[in-house]
């Protein structure tokens, strides 16, 4: 049952992606991106990644949508199609896609328990997490303890990005392209 639900959700994901490519109203694009995030969150629940699903539902479908709408409030909301030819990007993308799919064919089949990814490091986490940290949620114990340096780095990136946005948007304001400094 699990693989069937998974395949159905992934097919819907592909359909929404195609709709995003074709949509020219940016409001439509933002709402479709929000639907896309909810579908990703559902797929993640099926894949047993509940912590990640919760994050994607609140961040991807919530905060990013709000920020994109807040930005759309400040700019024009209809996309103008570019005049340059669109065939080269399509060819490059298709070529890249076929190459990477060809590369994934040698990956272990979906859902097998003896894949190499499950043999290294993780069995020890599963065995010793309770004994060493008293925390049954492995994601929390790895996030904050075993791989604490990673998370410290990620928090620093969030800090830096936040400071960057505040520097860009809280400064003095200049409207229109005519008074551009030369």
């Amino acid at each position: 049952m699990e693989p069937i639900i998974n395949m159905a959700l992934l097919t819907m994901l592909a359909v929404v992606t195609v709709a995003i490519i074709g949509q020219r109203s940016l409001f439509g694009v933002v709402i479709l991106a929000s639907i896309y995030s909810f579908l990703i969150a559902s797929v993640l629940v099926v894949l047993d990644a509940v912590d990640v699903a919760m994050t994607e539902a609140s961040v991807g479908a919530g905060i990013s949508t709000v920020l994109l709408l807040a930005a759309l409030h400040l700019v024009k909301t209809i996309e103008v199609l570019p005049t340059q030819p669109r065939l080269p990007p399509l060819l490059v993308s298709a070529l890249a896609g076929v190459t990477v799919i060809w590369g994934t064919l040698v990956l272990p089949p979906f859902g097998t328990a003896d894949a190499p990814i499950h043999r290294h490091v993780v069995p020890r986490y599963i065995e010793r997490s309770i004994e060493e940290t008293n925390v049954p949620n492995l994601v929390s114990s790895i996030l904050a303890d075993y791989r604490g340096y990673d998370t410290l780095g990620e928090t620093t990136v969030i800090f830096t990005a936040g400071i960057g946005v505040l520097l860009l948007l809280r400064g003095t304001r200049r409207r229109g392209h005519n008074d551009r400094a030369d």
């Binding site: 961040v59 994601v139 996030l143 990620e154 990005a161 960057g164 946005v165 948007l169």
Partner: peptide, 30 residues
């Protein structure tokens, strides 16, 4: 149990992703 290690890596990546998206949007606004 499913493998928790990719979950940890991606959980942080999602939040970093929205922070960098906001930075990109700020540049677009400017």
């Amino acid at each position: 149990y499913s493998n928790p290690l990719p979950h940890v890596l991606i959980l942080t990546a999602i939040v970093v992703g929205v922070a960098t998206l906001a930075l990109g949007l700020a540049l677009v606004v400017r």
